[in-house]
Structures are given as C-alpha cells and as structure tokens.
Design a binder for these strands. Structure first.
Lengths: 217, 217
DNA sequence: GTCTATAATCTGATAGAC
DNA sequence: GTCTATCAGATTATAGAC
C-alpha cells in the first residue's frame, strides 16, 4: 500500500516537472532563450518562484531538462524519416537513395524551423554559461550515431559524410531562420542540396536504381 | 580657430567611442554577447556607468556600433580574398575558378572562427530584442552584394549560387565553433566543400582551365 | 507543497552637483 | 565630461511559517 502512494506521488511530481519544462519552452519562444526567469516561469504554472525550486534545483537544471527533451524529440522525429522516403520513392527519375536523402533533409529542416529556439539550444549552443549534463549530452551523441547508422544503411562509407551533411543542413536551416523566417528562400534549395551531397558522397547511388538502400524497411 | 577646436573635440569623442566599443567586444568574448553591462563596460574604460551614456544613448546603440564595425571588418577582410586566390592559383590540377572558390571559403571560415562572438552577432542574430539600425543593416546588405559580384565575376549566373554557398559556409563554420572549438574537424572539409559547390553551380569551371575567372585582378 | 519575506546582487537609465 | 546618488526595478536563491 505504501508503495502505491509513493508511486502516485512520484508520478504527480513528474507531471509537474513536465508542466514547468513546457512553460519554459513557451517563455523562451516568446522572449528568447536567455530571458527565462524563475518568477515568470512560476507564474505560468500557477506558482511563486520559490516553489519551482522544489522541482528543479536551479535554473540550469531547467535548461538541462529542455536540452534533454529537445534531443528526445529529435531522435523520435528523425527515426520516422525512413517512412517519408518510402512515400517519396514512387516518384519518377529518382533513385531510392536520392529519395531517402531528400526526405532526410526535409525532415531535419522541418524539425529545426518548427521551433527556432529549440534549434538554438540543441545545435547552436549560444546560451552563455550553460553546459548540458553528461546524461543529457549522451542523447546528443546518440542522435549523431543515429545519423551515422542511416548513412551506413544507405551504403555510404565516406567518413566525412556525416560532418559534411550536418554542416550543409544546419547551414540551410540557420540561414532560413535568421534571414527569412516564415519564408522558403532556403527551403527551396533542400532537394538540390540533398542531390549535391549524394553526388559528392556516393555518385553511384544517384544512377543505380537497384542499390540496396532500403535495407532497413 | 574655433573650427579647429570643434574638430579636435569631435575627434577625441570618436576615439572614446571606439574605445568603448572595443571594451564591449572584450566583455562579450569573456562572458557572452548578452552579458555586457553598462557598469562593467564603464569600468573597462575607466568610467562609471552614467558616463558611458554621454557616448552612447543606450545599450542597444552599443550593440549597433558593434554590428556595424563587424560588417566593416567583414567587407574589408573578404575584399582581400582575390589575392589569396592568386597565390593559390599556381597549384597543379586546379582551375582558376576552383582556386578562387577555395580561397573564398577559407577566407570566410577564418573570419568567423577568429571571433565566434562576432560571428554570432553578425550571422546568427540570436541576441534577443536587438535589431540593427537601417544604417548598419545597409552594410550587411552590401556584404551580400559583394558576394554576388564575386560570383558574377567568376561567370556564375545561377541565381541560387549565393544562397547555397552561404548556407554551406555558415554551416561548416557553425559546426566548427559549436562542436569542435579550436580544432579542425570541419575546417578540413573546406576544399572539398568548395569543389562540391562549384561542381553544382558551374561544372565547366572545374575543367576549363582557360575560363576568364580572374577578370578582376 | 506552497507560501511570504528577504537576502544579496544585479540591471538600464536619469538628475543634478562639480 | 565625469562624478555621486538614486530610481525603479530585475535577478537567483534561501529560510522558515503554514
């Protein structure tokens, strides 16, 4: 009986923690990532500032929870990219590898532009003084590994493939967010960028229609 | 006689303004762009906070002066890229266009990684609430036009050339600054990236050694 | 669990003496 | 031209009542 009570308490606590993190995202989107205050944050969830400290030991712990949640969302979101590629695969004149590369590019771009503040926290790392905990940072490493696996499954062995494509994709995203928010000036270039990348990394995947790039499905 | 006195005063004033802006850069590099305070800034130049307001009407005016100075430095720095290309041109197996594209990439990369805080202010625009004045923003526009002229001089007419290359170059730079500061993990990829870009935008410039790409020199 | 009260400190900006 | 003094807040975080 005592165990059940403890579990219910823990559950309730986790719910409130999640509520606080959600409110922190809202505030960050409204006023900027660095402009979150414990007062405002508390007010958003119907508390005063000191009560927030019952759930997070410091402001940095809240940023860390945001960082962690952001990468969890990223991992989940990118895992679905293969499905996109399957859908796009039916198009004429496009190899399975190109369809997959394009789908990947659009997936990544959509995730980033959907929430520029999240993009800033996860990929730009311009929040002064903040360093993610080892536990949260491990998620960022796993995201990178997931990208490497994706390339391996496509048959791309070039060791620079991941670094070159993250650079190009984050670059397109950054430019879109900073210089044409809400527009499509750089989004338009995604298909072309994906093709350029594939031509550089594995040109045979651009012509050979029977290459086993969908091994994972 | 009166005129001379006025000129000396104006000159002295401009010197102090420059001193304050230099101190602001120092503070930004040490504690982050958003963490500049008027008190600290004054202390750096041997003043109290209120005296700084004699030279700049607000904190935003100081950010604007930094933004402006950063783009002035950028314009000057990139104008010298043609000289780099001339030096690199002697290399075997490289067309003048490729030498030029590579030199441009390295120039841009060096400018950005030399001062990540400046890069953040000029290209990332993540300083919450800050908008450059029309006068300062005009410099940013001119920088972009200078890039467009560079491509035109190389004979590249593709209208997406500039957007695609700024995306790739800022991407490589961002990744280097955020994920491997002081290292060369993305710097190593610059030559390859420049070649990939040129192959996409004007493949003939990669093979035709007699193309008039050095028209400007 | 949440509160009030408060410590201790920081912030941008202004008034007015010298 | 620079200062002191100060306004009118803001900030993170803690102590202790309820």
């Amino acid at each position: 009986m005592t165990e059940t009570v403890v579990d219910r308490r823990t559950l309730r606590r986790e719910e409130t923690r999640a509520e606080i993190v959600a409110a922190a995202w809202d505030l960050a989107r409204e006023h900027g990532l660095a402009a979150i205050s414990m007062r405002d944050l508390g007010a958003r969830v119907g508390m005063r500032a000191p009560s927030v400290y019952t759930y997070f030991e410091s402001k940095d712990a809240i940023y860390d929870a945001m960082f962690r949640q952001g990468y969890e969302q990223f991992l989940e979101w990118m895992a679905d990219a293969a499905a996109d590629a399957r859908d796009a695969d039916a198009r004429v004149g496009v190899t399975p590898a190109l369809a997959r590369a394009r789908a990947h590019a659009h997936r990544f771009f959509a995730f980033c532009t959907a929430d520029p503040v999240r993009y800033q926290l996860l990929f730009l790392r311009t929040l002064p003084g903040f360093e993610p905990s080892a536990q949260s940072y491990a998620l960022a490493v796993r995201a990178l590994e997931q990208g490497a696996d994706e390339y391996a499954a496509m048959g791309i062995t070039d060791p620079d493939a991941l670094d070159l494509s993250t650079a190009l994709l984050t670059g397109l995203t950054s430019q879109q967010i900073a210089n044409d928010p809400g527009g499509d000036r750089w989004e338009r270039l995604l298909d072309r960028a994906a093709e350029m990348l594939l031509r550089e990394l594995a040109p045979d995947l651009l012509t050979d229609r029977d290459h086993p790039t969908m091994r994972r499905t």
